[in-house]
Simulated assay, not measured.
Amino acid sequence: MGVQLNIKDEETVRLARELAAEMGESVTQAVRIALQERRARTVQPQRRATAEEILALVRGARAHLKPEFRDQELSLTHGDLLYNEDGSFK
């Protein structure tokens, strides 16, 4: 007897069978490929973002800021944007 996976959720079994039928595969193949594809999308080697990538994200986010904040220099800290000189909220 081979390795087994006992799925007790009816919706999951239905989806696996539908996918297998649509793809012309066995249920085992359909589940294996679906899991491999999801794993490839979600489990990626960790890497550090480059400065260029971070700046691109910041520039993209700036488009969603209020006009008075959008035109500020990138060197400002969150405190510069949130607080007045006396420490009160802007």
Results as ranks from 00 to 15, higher is better:
79 G>N: 06
46 Q>W: 07
17 R>K: 13
44 Q>V: 13
81 L>H: 11
6 N>S: 13
38 R>S: 12
51 A>Q: 07
35 L>I: 11
9 D>C: 06
39 R>H: 10
39 R>Y: 12
16 A>D: 02
47 R>F: 11
12 T>E: 14
14 R>L: 07
79 G>A: 09
47 R>E: 00
9 D>N: 13
41 R>D: 05
74 L>K: 00
51 A>D: 04
10 E>W: 04
6 N>Y: 10
74 L>W: 02
46 Q>T: 12
53 E>N: 01
67 P>D: 01
24 G>M: 05
6 N>G: 10
3 V>C: 13
3 V>G: 13
10 E>A: 13
75 S>I: 03
90 K>C: 04
42 T>V: 14
35 L>T: 07
76 L>E: 08
84 N>L: 13
64 H>T: 11
56 A>W: 03
3 V>L: 12
27 V>D: 06
9 D>Q: 07
4 Q>H: 09
1 M>K: 10
86 D>M: 06
78 H>P: 09
21 A>V: 08
50 T>I: 05
5 L>Y: 11
70 R>E: 02
44 Q>R: 14
44 Q>F: 09
66 K>T: 12
53 E>Q: 04
5 L>R: 05
64 H>N: 08
73 E>L: 13
81 L>I: 08
1 M>Q: 09
6 N>V: 13
32 R>A: 15
30 A>Q: 03
42 T>R: 15
16 A>V: 01
59 R>I: 00
75 S>Y: 06
42 T>S: 10
19 L>T: 15
13 V>Y: 08
21 A>T: 12
59 R>A: 04
67 P>W: 08
79 G>L: 10
46 Q>I: 06
4 Q>R: 06
45 P>G: 06
60 G>R: 06
87 G>V: 03
19 L>A: 07
3 V>N: 14
